[in-house]
Each structure stands twice: as structure tokens, then as C-alpha cells.
Design a protein around this nucleic acid. Sequence first.
DNA 1: GTCTATACTCTGATAGAC
DNA 2: GTCTATCAGAGTATAGAC
Lengths: 216, 216
Amino acid sequence: MPAPRTPPAEKPGTQARAPRSRIQQRNRELILDAALEVFSTHGFRGATLDQIAAQAGLSKPNLLYYFDSKDTVHRALLTRLLDSWLDPLRKLDPMGEPQAEILSYMRRKLDMSRAYPRESRLFANEILQGAPRIEAFISNDLRALVDEKAQVIAGWAGAGRIAPVDPHHLIFSIWALTQHYADFAAQIGMIRGEGHDPFSGAGDFLDHLYARLLAP
Amino acid sequence: MPAPRTPPAEKPGTQARAPRSRIQQRNRELILDAALEVFSTHGFRGATLDQIAAQAGLSKPNLLYYFDSKDTVHRALLTRLLDSWLDPLRKLDPMGEPQAEILSYMRRKLDMSRAYPRESRLFANEILQGAPRIEAFISNDLRALVDEKAQVIAGWAGAGRIAPVDPHHLIFSIWALTQHYADFAAQIGMIRGEGHDPFSGAGDFLDHLYARLLAP
DNA sequence: GTCTATACTCTGATAGAC
DNA sequence: GTCTATCAGAGTATAGAC
């Protein structure tokens, strides 16, 4: 999700507008990692620069040397996140075998939740707050992609290649089920006992569930 | 969910420690309703008394006349919420018809999400923040109830009355799917178009999904 | 019961020395 | 690049008049 994104190895001395040294890059990463931790837990307004700076091991003014404002840090996180948020669904192949394609999509989403639970919670926080900062992304990019893939799925259902199913609800269900293990990890941990991986068994359960739902 | 809870009609002149007049009761309700709106959107730390007071149509000092502190307001909301949070699962009857019981449970949860989306988001916010204020509730009350009902479901599966299924994951899936429509309503609205009821079609989809999953 | 005024703390952001 | 000092504004909470 946070695409490492090696910068295009600028010619020395000619860096245009991101002339970042190794230590600068490292501090920016420290800050973003700390900010992800804090924002994903407390939301934008609930997070403080003090917390983020402490978590990053820097002073608050030093943090603000790297990012102009609290908002800038948050925006940087969201940008990285949204950049890869659509990838799993994008890969759903209209030419593939329907049931396998949908199951693979679900697996990619689940793997992403497992690998990047904080990013999932950051996203969840945004939506809970009414999605003020990512409204454009959802109303345009995400919506277009969902409608496109929903048509693909509707085609499969119409052709009898999977059981009849509302494509939008199918997609929402995959989001709900896969993100739940990241977003509600605290609750699952308290119910299954601490030290228990919240994702344990989830893959098998969801494979089984969607295999049953989609079998023609 | 917010159980109206008619107070035990105290004898006039002898009210022990909740001597609330009609106008007091009404203002308390106004405050709690406003606080639910704000806390469920911004989380505890992201919410401000100014917002809550404005939403309630009262001054901030007046709000603090009714509740000692921000924390007190929040605690009052959580108490009301948790009071009824377990009801749907509690009603799962070990003596009932297995598939019908589980489908009814799912329906009760869905109805609760539809009727009380703000309460669902308040709860989601708490969990996202690591559940600091409701840890005892989850680790004790909720966990015990879940384990108890999971045993019931495991018994049904063992007896071949429903398809074999991991009971904990089954319960988690019901939570995820039903609460999603409340917690992520903003996203669903932006994808399906504003003015579209986020819950529309959800009942049918989930009925179908669990019928397929559980059929022996 | 409700308001204005205010005390005091926290928070985001800047200035300026090193 | 990093720090100490500091400011202005927001935020919780209280005092006290009405």
C-alpha cells in the first residue's frame, strides 16, 4: 500500500523541487509512520502534533520543519493510501474465471488488511467522519471503478456463470468482511484472547463463504 | 438501543438523587442527542463541547450544568449504548430452529444498525481507538456472551443441522456486514448516489448470503 | 437554570539561537 | 537541521451575576 516508490534517481546537482538527502528521507518516513499510528487511532482532530512528534522521536518544531502543518502530514498519508487503495479491485479480470476472480479479489483485500491494518483504520476514520477529505476520491475514482466492476459481475451472473447476486452488495460485503479484521482488531483480540492473531482463520472462512454464495 | 427507560415514578417530594424536572429531563436528552451526533462523527478527543452545546442549542456553561464534564457526557452515551448492545445476540435461542435463529439474529443486528446508525458509529469509534473506555465490557460481558452462543452454534453444526462453520467467524461476519451499512454509510452514499438509502437491498442480500452459507 | 466573563491548559505554529 | 522559547487561538471548566 505505501508504495516504496523509488524516486527517479535525479542527476546530482539538478534536483528540481524534492532535493531530499538520505537523512531527510528517513525523518520524513519516521514522521509519516508515527502519524499513521496516531491518526489511525484518534482521527484527524483527535490526534496531536505532540503525540506524533514524540512517537517519531523528534521535537515538534522539527516535525514542522519537514511538514508545513498537521494537515500536510495527514494529506501525505491519505495520498499514499488512496494511491494503492483501488489496486485489488482494479485487478479483477473480466476475462478470468468468475468465481476464482471474485475469490482472488477478496483474498487481495484481506491480505491488504492484514499487511496494512493502520491504513485500513485511517480510511475507516475518514469515512466515519463523513469522508470530508476524500469525498472526491470516493465520488469519482472509487465510484467509477466499482460501477465498472459491478457491471462485469452482473454480466457473469446474467450468463449463469455465478449465482445471481447484487454486484454492489457483493462488493460492499467484501469490504466489510475484510476490513473488519483490521478495523475491529481490538475487539476481536479481547474476545479471542490477547496474543491471538485477529486474522487467524479468516481466510478459510471467507473462502468458504464466497464459494458457497457464488456457486451457480 | 437508547432504552427510553421510564424512571420508577418517584413519589413527589421524596426523590432521592435524580430529582429531575420535566425541563431538566428534556435538556439532558437534547444534550445527549447532540453529543451522540458529535462524538459518533469525530470520536471522543475530536469532539468539542462548543460543537455539542451549539448542536443542542444551549450555552457551553449550561451544558456543563447538566453534565459535570465532557467525559461524563460521553460515559452516559456509552452506558446507554452498551445496555442494549447485547440484546440481539442474547435472544439467539438454543432451542429454536438453527438456521432461522441465526438469520433472525442477523436481521436484528441489521435493524439495529438501520435504526441507530449513530450509536453504531460511536461504538466503531471506540473500537478504532483501541476500546480504552469499553475494554471491561468487551473482555467480560461481550466475550462471555459470544463464547456461550458460539458453543450453541458449534453444537448445531456438530449435529449437522447447519453446515459446518467456525462459530466465532460467523458471528464476526454478522457484525461486520450489518454494522458496515451504518459505519460506512457516507461511502455507500457517495457510490450509490446521494439520496439512496444505504440499507436498501441489504436485508435481502444478507438473507440470501446466510441461507446459502448455513444450508446443511 | 441560564448567562457573561474568565481562569487555565492544550495545541498548532513561528522566531531565532546554535 | 535541530533546539528552546514563545505566541495566538482553541478548548475545558469554573465563578458569579441575574
